[in-house]
Design a binder for these strands. Sequence first.
DNA 1: TCTAACTTTTGACAAAAGTCAAAAAATCAT
DNA 2: ATGATTTTTTGACTTTTGTCAAAAGTTAGA
Lengths: 198, 198
Amino acid sequence: MLTSSFSNQDYLSLFSLFNSIYPLSEELKAAIIKNSEVIEAHKKVKLLSVGERSNTIYFIVKGAARIYYLNKEGKETNTWFLFENELLISVYSFYTGNPSFEYIETLEDCKLIAVKRDKLDEMYLKYMEFNFSGRKLTEFYHMRNEMQANDLRMYSAKERYEHLIERNPQLFQRVSLGHIASYLGISRETLSRIRKQK
Amino acid sequence: MLTSSFSNQDYLSLFSLFNSIYPLSEELKAAIIKNSEVIEAHKKVKLLSVGERSNTIYFIVKGAARIYYLNKEGKETNTWFLFENELLISVYSFYTGNPSFEYIETLEDCKLIAVKRDKLDEMYLKYMEFNFSGRKLTEFYHMRNEMQANDLRMYSAKERYEHLIERNPQLFQRVSLGHIASYLGISRETLSRIRKQK
DNA sequence: TCTAACTTTTGACAAAAGTCAAAAAATCAT
DNA sequence: ATGATTTTTTGACTTTTGTCAAAAGTTAGA
């Protein structure tokens, strides 16, 4: 994991995301740049491991990552795939400060903007309007989470697969079927059988 | 559903929740009182129905409520139970403004503090520090959501039951087994069998 | 390009949970 | 209190999905 040479270019998409929610002052932009770093991570690099306390939030400038845990039999189960312009954290560990029960790992070579929790908290206290954007973003991710949980409850394996391929076909270009199977909450074999029956 | 005669008493627990996150100014307290109403709702009253757009967030002063949807066969499936000092919303509909796919219904006679979304948004714009508390609360509910989704993925029906009775035994005093079964993602019969085998 | 490693598919069987129907138990309203 | 309604339990059977093992297909390095 390397710290990249500095370039404002890397912050464009992050600033544009924040600006679309609440106007970002030049002062706050400068604080964000000062309190974060741009890092590059190769494919299959762990950004967080089980037992560690997460203290970093990442914004994905380029690349993809997954969040997964190991079940009782030691098999990986993916809970999220995240791509460009998305925020990447272990929600439980980052918000509670408790040790993580899940891993964060890159799926592709990534360029990330990393902010430490203490720096983020400083900014939230110093720039109250930053909480406006933070709240809105948290609401959005909360909603996505709720939708995902509802999908797991409401639909059979086959329906979940059909929804996913309809709503998110690009996922299948970037993530293997084995990874997608566990994300859907089914075994690789079951996914293979679902796909075969047309 | 009745509007209660006014009493500051009803706001104590709400203010104390906010105060524990970020100091609540007298001005903001007054705004909250002005922009909300205390309502009472009997048992089994629907606060939101499928197809309606949710525009109200409730704080539960007293009582209990559930959030549920109807599956394809028309059976109710509970996704959340909420009690005193908790916030009650249909996350998807309230945050997106889209029609709800779920119901909110009281489980007991309730006293609630209701805030309309437009009033809430006004307060978020006028009192920037209110976003600090809003963000923290959203983070907390987001985290709970994530934990619940992980429980659904990681554990078998029996394990989910055992976790629930261990972590939340009071739930079984206030909510019927039929309701709890659907919350656990299993049929009433399966829950009954799990309970029998000690 | 060839081999090793990984991913996906297939078949046979097993386990978990659901469905349907009916009985038993608990709760509620008059 | 008591009859009616609702909730919970039980039994027999079905469906869905998982597991294990092996084959086939794909990908990525050396």
